[in-house]
Design a protein around this nucleic acid. Structure first.
Length: 509
RNA sequence: CGCGGGGUGGAGCAGCCCGGUAGCUCGCGAGGCUCAUAACCUCGAGGUCGGGGGUUCAAAUCCCUCCCCCGCAACCA
């Protein structure tokens, strides 16, 4: 058994969560559940990034303190994730002064000791209307595109992170692909290309006067940390680094995977390893980078009015169909689309007609014969379908190709089941005992399908297993449940009888 | 020359790195079955793989070039 530590990005709670948030968490959860199921000792962490100017401003607009704003919004994320059955172990809030701040401030000091930080004067183009610095790229004809005024040159003191120093180190790290992997490859290439273009040192703090909602820089009370040292550090503050409850085992002795979106890929790929290297901490093992969701083919935006709220989908179809859609439709690394039409098609074709119907047709017939399961055979050749299904499935899951695992490997077991069932045509068999023995094979097939579905649709996996009356059904969602002893054909000797068939996925609309 | 992604049957995608009968899902049409959630199974129609040029016995796949689309990133302007 090896240790695995998997994290998501921490969300910015200046507004309620949307489908993009759900997608990332489901992806990470599918991975975490697969890790556990295949016998690893897993720690899964998520959280919220609660500081920064946007929160500060949003709070002002709403006439409340920033703390009150995040205290109001963070539970929206937590409650969504609990409804989505995101099986995280730790939830880090960057405003947590007990658990998060001490690590961040300690890391800051380490960086300082290592010579990574240097105070400089930053000169930038400041737009008074926006109350922020603009880059040349933001400008339209030399003026702010929003306020149409020329920004003024303003200088302020910042602590800078000496990123340039680590360019060679990072290049070596990326090229070696040894212990530090960026998935998918295209993102690794992009990162290298960024490196080739040359790195700039990064502003790590702002004066209190321009950013007050953040963690104070230790030993320099007029400075507040900018996002990087604050937010990225959540990955180790959740492990209590540099405190008296430090647990390095899930970092030093674990395979560390950060699941993040493409928007923050470059920061995770460059700044974070550089920080860790300065501080003498090992780099994470893998960045798993996902794309973005569009809605009905267009960019999700408030002004277009096409922002999809996970709750609407959950209310209509339920949690597992949503998890299924996200895992089935959007290959890791690609952008994906959320389409109600496509959702409905998938729900009907895959979940109701193929999966639900297979379960039902088998179970109803067997139940009429008393449901006895003794003597599970392999006359329909299902054993080899299951065996090769498991092997492809495991390979895909281990390679984070979860779309292939679900859409190809699991669904082809389902489809092979329906196919074989038609060929065998047990309803034409007049001898009850012979018919029962045939049916028992399909029940065993379904047991395996449910196991394979577990990372994707935990609740459904359990429902199927309950209908099948599998002995482990009640404990299969526990974190120490593994497939180790149960993924072999006919391995369940104490399984005697099936349960009551029920409709798994009801028609919607 | 900013960077990146993409253009494959009606729709959505895979295949491209490592050239060799163009594949999957949905949808559509015909037939079969009737155990089952009008579900299941089989067969079929439909593509000169964005255009042009090159390399090669052979190109969706490699090289050059042109055209077109989408982002530069998540609710915030």
């Amino acid at each position: 058994m090896s240790r695995r530590y998997i994290t998501t990005a921490i969300d910015y709670p200046n507004a309620p969560p949307h489908m993009g948030h759900a997608m990332e968490k489901v992806l990470a959860d599918v991975c975490a559940r697969w890790f556990r199921l295949s016998g690893h000792d897993v720690r899964f962490q998520t959280g919220t990034d609660e500081h920064g100017i946007k929160i500060q401003r949003k709070a002002e607009e709403e006439g409340m303190t920033p703390q009150a704003l995040v205290d109001r919004n963070v539970p929206l994320f937590q409650s969504l994730y609990s409804r989505l059955h995101i099986s995280y172990d730790v939830f880090v809030r960057t405003t947590d002064r007990e658990k998060h701040w001490p690590t961040v401030q300690a890391l800051w000091k380490k960086l300082q000791e290592a010579g990574a930080l240097e105070k400089r004067t930053y000169v930038g183009l400041y737009c008074a209307g926006c109350e922020r610095f603009l880059t040349k790229r933001d400008l339209a004809d030399g003026t702010c595109p929003i306020h149409h005024t020329a920004p003024e040159e303003v200088s302020e003191e910042n602590w800078f992170f000496r990123m340039k120093e680590k360019a060679d180190y990072l290049k070596t790290l990326l090229v070696a692909k040894d212990g530090y992997v960026i998935t998918p490859d295209s993102r690794a290439h992009e990162t290298l290309s960024l490196l080739e273009q040359g790195l700039e040192d990064v502003s790590f703090s702002r004066p209190q006067s321009s950013l007050s909602w953040g963690i104070p820089v230790p030993g320099d009370e007029n400075q507040v940390m900018y996002v990087w040292c604050d937010a990225l550090t959540n990955y180790i503050s959740g492990l209590g680094y540099f405190t008296d409850h430090e647990d390095k085992s899930y970092w030093e002795d674990a395979e560390v995977t950060h699941v993040i979106g493409k928007d923050i890929a470059r920061f995770h790929a460059l700044i974070w390893p550089a920080m860790l290297h300065y501080a003498g901490i090992k780099t994470p093992n893998r960045l798993l980078i996902h794309g973005f969701l569009t809605s009905e083919g267009e960019k999700m935006s408030k002004s277009l009015g096409n922002v999809v709220v996970p709750d609407d989908v959950i209310a209509k179809y339920g949690v597992d169909p949503l998890r299924f859609y996200l895992s089935h439709e959007i290959p890791v690394g690609n952008d994906g689309d959320f389409s109600w039409k496509r959702f409905g098609e998938l729900y009907d074709a895959k979940l109701r007609n193929q999966l639900g119907n297979l379960l039902n047709r088998v179970l109803v017939m067997l139940q009429k014969l008393g449901g006895d399961l003794s003597d599970i055979q392999n006359s329909a050749g299902l054993k080899s379908i299951v065996a090769s299904g498991w092997s492809m499935y495991a390979a895909h899951m281990d390679a984070f190709q979860i779309t292939d695992a679900l859409a190809t490997d699991v669904m082809s077991c389902v489809s092979a089941g329906n196919q074989s069932f038609n060929d065998k045509a047990p309803w034409t068999e007049k001898d009850d005992e012979k018919r029962r023995v045939i049916l028992a094979e399909y029940v065993e097939l379904l047991r395996h399908i449910a196991l394979m579905l577990l990372p994707f649709m935990p609740e459904t996996a359990q429902k199927i297993s309950r209908q099948l009356n599998v002995p482990y059904a009640e404990r299969m969602l526990e974190k120490d449940f593994t497939i180790d002893t149960v993924h072999e054909w006919g391995s369940l000797k104490d399984w005697k009888k099936v349960g009551i068939p029920e409709i798994l996925f009801a028609p919607v609309e």
